[in-house]
Design a protein around this nucleic acid. Structure first.
Length: 460
RNA sequence: GCUCCUAUCGUCUAGAGGCCUAGGACGGAGCCCUCUCAAGGCUUAAACCCGGGUUCGAAUCCCGGUAGGAGCGCCA
């Protein structure tokens, strides 16, 4: 069965680039009826934190990319790693290295000075003496001849000369296993068939394949996805703004939009820009993923989000809308139904941050007016309109959009005023600004009581 | 320095030797519509990194250059 995994290390937030490799892994597994697993690579005890683990879970859950099975933590598998390491030692695939850190540093310094690639020269490979009590690391005995080729799902065949690869440490002198070794043992034990991961691991791949071969295991297929760059073409970092997946929630995006944007970044299916979750699964084709890194474009994400917001069934997005309103300290206890406001606002709001800001007047009192808008529309003339209209509205029995439409339009027509001359002052009066849905809808949603009170307050 | 990877509008991309006068999308510009903001409609500017081959024919294949990126830890 096809098995993929996402294997982040919990040393920070869930990076947007990581989210994309997770998405590709997820899609690949789904498409082939397989499983998608999550593994926490927390062997770096210094930098790994529980908060980061939590952030990863939160991010994955928000995106809807939850793993099919319970996540695996590398720190809980040390016994297994040691067992495999000892087996390799016994079989002659690994050896003890007694080189000190200082000795290694000197070796590297010499190589760098000679403009050579810094690498371990294998001096302990055939060492016969075993200094009693001396600290040692365990190194993998990498083949010294021939070549290892990676049949990459995205990049095609990549050939490495084994002579280029040195004997890497698989167990540290403190007895703890290293990254490249844990990955190999885990992928093997988890029966991972397709390793889809970041581009930065390409150079680790031949080593991992060689270890797997020494273990007598069948290496999985690999697919290395290019990284995501900032808009300036430099590696995406905090300097570019949001890099953590969960930040995109705070920015007002829908998980579906982030997913859609991410899947189209470095991948395409003809001219199609928008995909349903089902289409993503059925249409995704890893071999069509771009080989070059792509730049992150916030403008396009915003567009994708707006497209999603415009067509999503309102009830499916009220959760995000409420979350943002409450984040602004707005109580939604009294006021129109969230669904109705979403329906009225979604055409003009690209994100939920925007929607919340432009809709808070439906739920809380207007305590101040936008200065420019007030100066322009709450003039003596404007106030007269508000006062006059208030009288008409008082008499209105049916507080519905069509009825309000008739009254407002009728008022303007009767006085030979353009609709703008009437609607704009009302807007400022009830919304505090000159931006709102069509005026009849706005008033209908706001309700009779609030409308009349605000009209009166502004007419003064 | 060494190894590996990459290269189409500003950005994401289509393009698998003739369908390319290089298509779509975001963003930009202009016009229309309009009670605001939007949305929508129409129009428009904008790219094959450079140089050699191969071929009747190259954005597409090959080689070289250039530029960018990744890796070279008892980090992951």
């Amino acid at each position: 069965m096809v098995t993929t995994r996402f294997a982040p290390s919990p040393t920070g937030y869930l990076h947007i680039g990581g989210a994309r490799t997770a998405l590709f892994s997820y899609l690949y597994a789904r498409k082939h009826g397989g499983r998608y697993l999550l593994r926490i690579e927390d062997t770096d005890r210094e930098r790994s934190t529980d908060a980061a683990v939590k952030a990863i879970f939160e991010g994955m859950e928000w995106l809807g990319l939850a793993a099919d099975e319970k996540p695996i933590f590398q720190t809980q598998r040390y016994d297994r790693y040691r067992e495999v390491a000892n087996q390799m030692l016994a079989q002659g695939h690994a050896y003890r290295c007694y080189c000190s850190k200082q000795e290694l540093d000197e070796m590297r310094a010499g190589q760098t000075a000679r403009k050579e690639k810094p690498r371990y020269d294998g001096r302990c490979r055939n060492r016969s003496d075993t200094p009693a009590g001396a600290p040692f690391t365990i190194r993998f005995k990498n083949p010294q001849e021939g070549a290892t080729v990676v049949h990459d799902l995205i990049k095609g065949d990549i050939e490495f000369q084994n002579a280029e690869l040195d004997d890497l440490i698989i167990v540290r002198s403190d007895g703890n296993p290293t990254y490249n070794f844990c990955v190999v043992v885990d992928d093997w034990d988890m029966k991972v068939t397709h390793v889809i991961r970041g581009d930065d691991h390409v150079n680790n791949t031949p080593r991992q394949i060689n270890i797997l071969k020494a273990l007598g295991a069948q290496p999985p297929a690999y697919g290395h996805v290019p990284m995501i760059l900032g808009s300036d073409g430099v590696k995406l970092s905090k300097r570019h703004g949001a890099v953590s997946v969960i930040d995109y929630r705070a920015l007002g995006f829908l998980p579906a939009a982030v997913l859609n944007y991410l899947v189209r970044l470095g991948w395409s299916h003809g001219d199609q820009e928008l995909f349903t979750p089902e289409e993503m699964v059925s249409l995704f084709d890893i071999s069509r993923v771009q080989k070059a890194p792509a730049r992150f474009d916030m403008e396009k994400l915003i567009w994708v989000n707006h497209e999603m917001v415009k067509v999503a069934p309102p009830e499916t997005v009220t959760g995000e809308f409420r979350w943002h309103l409450e984040r602004l300290g707005v109580s939604v206890a009294t006021g129109p139904k969230l669904e109705d406001v979403v329906l009225a606002q979604r055409e003009r709001c690209k994100t939920f941050v925007e929607m919340a800001e432009k809709s808070r007047f439906f739920y809380e009192e207007v305590t101040s007016y936008n200065e420019k808008d007030a100066a322009k529309h709450l003039t003596a003339e404007g106030k007269a309109v508000l006062a006059g209209l208030a009288v008409e509205l008082q008499k209105l029995a049916d507080w519905s959009a069509p009825a309000l439409h008739t009254v407002v339009n009728g008022y303007a027509e009767a006085r030979g005023l353009s609709l703008g001359k009437v609607a704009q002052p009302i807007r400022v009066a009830v919304a505090g600004m000159a931006i709102s849905p069509p005026i009849d809808q706005t008033l209908a949603l706001l309700g009779r009581e609030r409308t009349l009170a605000r009209l009166a307050a502004a007419a003064k």
